Amino acid sequence: MSESTGEAPTPNGGVLAVLKRLDDGLSLVERQLLGWSIVLMAVNTVANVIMRLGFSSSIFFSEELNQFLIILVTFVGISEAARMGRHIRMSAFTDMLGPKSSKVMMIIITLGTAALLFLLAWYSIGYVSSLIQSNRLTPALRIPYYFTVLIVPFGLTVTGIQFVFAAATNIFKPGTHLSYQVEDTFSDADDHHL
């Protein structure tokens, strides 16, 4: 065991190194999208309030733009939440199992969640395809409606990838991990459930 890091070197360290590089790249893209979307929503909302109060007229596309940005923040944000281990989970049962059994359950849960997210991404691609064929335009901005939901398959896929990363981390690293970056902690009392 390495004294400096507190972790045993793993024979599959190369797999985790590749995952880390991919995760770092995804994180950069996601944080930029989230940050700029929130800034744009704030600017859009403040500008619309100023227009309404000062000129008694709203910006005609303000509400529509904010709806698009909310979709973007939601579906990119779920990936960031998964990366940081902040997703909703029902842990009462797994906490009773103890660390070793909890690790096995976490692998099963993360792989199952990833499979579900990939399935939803597949269905969302079908939905986007149907919107492309419909040629619908948004009411205010008059852009193709499918542009507004293109982020949904991306967000679901990237979140699925986060859960695959979490499963791989649980397989290749000691401890139970909620995500690639976040390890679950157990108290000493939990160790007696083994």
Rank of each mutant, 00 (worst) to 15 (best):
A189P: 01
R86M: 12
M84D: 14
Q67A: 12
A47S: 04
S4A: 15
R89M: 11
L28E: 04
P139E: 07
G98W: 01
A140V: 01
P144K: 03
I59C: 04
S62F: 03
L22H: 11
E64A: 05
L194E: 09
Y127M: 02
N135I: 03
A121S: 12
N12H: 15
S4D: 15
G77H: 00
I109H: 09
E64N: 02
L65F: 08
W122S: 12
I38T: 09
L120F: 13
L28Y: 07
M1W: 10
F165N: 09
K20V: 06
A42E: 10
I161D: 01
R31N: 15
I71H: 00
T110Y: 02
G6S: 11
I88C: 11
G98M: 06
T10Q: 15
F75V: 03
I143F: 00
I161G: 03
T94Q: 08
Q133E: 15
A92D: 12
M84A: 14
G85A: 14
A17C: 07
G160F: 04
E64G: 01
G14K: 11
A168F: 14
E63W: 07
N44H: 10
S124Q: 00
H192G: 10
F154E: 05
S179D: 06
L16Q: 11
A114W: 02
L22F: 14
F165E: 05
L26F: 14
V164R: 03
M51H: 13
N66G: 00
V128A: 09
L65N: 01
F118T: 01
L150M: 11
K103M: 11
P99W: 05
T5S: 06
S134Q: 15
R89Y: 08
A167G: 01
L34G: 00
L120V: 07
S79N: 03
P144Y: 05
H193V: 12
F93M: 07
R83P: 07
P139V: 03
S187P: 09
R136D: 15
W122T: 09
S179W: 04
S102C: 15
T45K: 02
V149H: 02
H177L: 09
I109Y: 12
R86C: 10
L19Q: 08
F60D: 07
